[in-house]
Simulated assay, not measured.
Amino acid sequence: MEDTGILENQHFSDIQKVISEWQVKIGEQVVRIRITLDNNGYYQFYTSHHYQSPELAGRVTSTNGNLGTETEALLAAERQIAGMYNPDDKKSTWIVNTSF
């Protein structure tokens, strides 16, 4: 990552550069994906929503950290969004990720 010295501040605990943002539609839900590069050189991903089905114990989330490339981060985000998605499950919901 480029020099982040300009952002060095005692109050900042983390610096990440936004590399890309994507938007996908799955069923009727629009989900946004944000890929960042942290100050250790790893790619992270964040999604705007998490899928939750009554058949699952909780919402579907993945750890989002320490990936080697932007492509790996996008693939991990795709797995999180679509991995357990069932278009026939009318009781499932999409939970807003308040950290996005």
Rank of each mutant, 00 (worst) to 15 (best):
G27K: 04
Y43D: 01
F45Y: 10
N39R: 13
M1K: 05
A73G: 03
E28Y: 06
N97G: 11
P87G: 08
S48P: 08
I81C: 05
Y85W: 10
G41T: 09
I19C: 05
W94L: 00
F12W: 11
N64I: 06
H11P: 05
M84W: 15
T61G: 06
Q80A: 06
N64P: 04
N97K: 14
R34L: 00
E2M: 07
N40R: 14
D14Y: 06
Q23G: 11
E21Q: 14
T4P: 04
Q23P: 02
A76E: 09
S13F: 08
T69N: 03
Q29F: 04
V31S: 08
H11N: 14
K90Y: 14
K91A: 15
G65I: 12
K17C: 02
P54L: 14
N64V: 05
S13N: 10
G68Y: 03
I19S: 03
E8I: 01
E72A: 06
S48T: 04
Y43R: 03
M84F: 15
I15L: 03
D38Q: 01
V24M: 00
N97T: 14
E2G: 02
N39M: 13
I15M: 06
A73T: 01
G83A: 02
T4N: 12
I19V: 13
K17V: 03
L56A: 11
F12V: 12
E8G: 01
S13I: 03
V60R: 13
Y42H: 11
M84G: 11
